[in-house]
């Protein structure tokens, strides 16, 4: 991959500030001047305890939240103001409500693929290809409300991959998965990065996940970045934070 294309698919988050909002049921944790770069072929983890601002940062990077100040750039454009850039970002939304629950996985994917701009035959072909890659048979055939955690997880991943993204954004991707499926998911992610050359930005509050998956880690605490670098560099700072949270009964 040339330097130019490397730059083209780099996501840069610079000094973003997001105000806290709490209009139930929506709660947004604040961010206080956080910066981050995800280059193609990299898996960058955002590590932090609950309420540290991980999800807010991920939503900013995906263009779902527009920061009060600072900038977000993907392929040189702002995903918050340019919907077409969002199309090249795959956000793995695992929430049940991110699907139409009474419709089958196939109907959900078909509609979203068509909203991505694909023609009907192209959308059908894309879903078939994703089925072959992720083994979606059961998830496609059943209503989403009847799917278990694992199948819904696969379906969410398939949805994020519909638009052949150059960046995958995953919010606590492996929570709720059993060890076998978790390992399978990690392998898929590593394979995807290698084959597609895309970047991955994921949030986690599990230190083992960060250690296993991420080439770089950003540690957040109360909306501020307090450490960044290889996992081994961040671990000594992260450990006391997580111990303190565990003592307070927060994950």
């Amino acid at each position: 991959m040339s330097d130019l294309s490397l730059h083209m698919h780099e996501v840069t988050v610079e000094q973003v500030i997001v105000d806290a909002a709490a209009q139930r049921p929506v709660v947004v944790e604040p961010l206080r001047g956080v910066s981050l770069v995800v280059r193609p072929g990299e898996i960058v983890g955002v590590l932090g305890t609950s309420g540290s601002g991980k999800s807010t940062l991920l939503r900013c990077a995906a263009g779902l939240i527009i920061p009060r100040s600072g900038s977000v750039r993907f392929a040189g454009r702002d995903p918050g103001h340019d919907p077409l850039v969002r199309r090249t970002i795959g956000f793995v939304l695992r929430d049940k409500t991110s699907f139409r629950p009474t419709l089958t996985g196939y109907e959900n994917l078909l509609a979203l693929a068509r909203l991505h701009g694909a023609s009907l035959p192209d959308a059908q072909r894309r879903i078939e290809a994703l089925d072959a890659e992720l083994d979606l048979r059961f998830a496609l055939a059943r209503p989403v409300e009847r799917l278990g955690v694992v199948l819904r997880h696969r379906l969410a991943l398939a949805r994020a991959l519909l638009g052949s993204p150059k960046l995958l954004v995953l919010d606590e991707p492996s929570s709720g998965l059993d060890p076998d499926h978790r390992d399978g998911f990690y392998s898929f992610l590593a394979r995807w990065v290698q084959q597609e050359g895309g970047g991955v930005l994921l949030s986690t509050h599990e230190m083992t996940e960060a250690q296993y998956l991420c080439s770089r880690v950003l540690l957040l605490d109360e909306g501020k970045a307090i450490a960044e670098g290889a996992y081994l560099k961040v671990e000594p700072i992260a450990e006391p934070l997580f111990r303190r949270s565990a003592a307070l009964g927060v994950t």
């Binding site: 049921p25 929506v26 995906a62 263009g63 779902l64 919907p83 077409l84 850039v85 969002r86 199309r87 970002i89 795959g90 956000f91 939304l93 929430d95 409500t97 991110s98 699907f99 139409r100 979203l112 909203l115 991505h116 701009g117 949805r159 994020a160 519909l162 638009g163």
Partner: peptide, 17 residues
């Protein structure tokens, strides 16, 4: 739509809000 993640899923397809 605002209170569910469905709107997020729709927005990620690149359709104007």
């Amino acid at each position: 739509a605002r209170e569910s993640a469905w709107l997020d899923a729709l927005r990620m397809t690149g359709v104007d809000l």
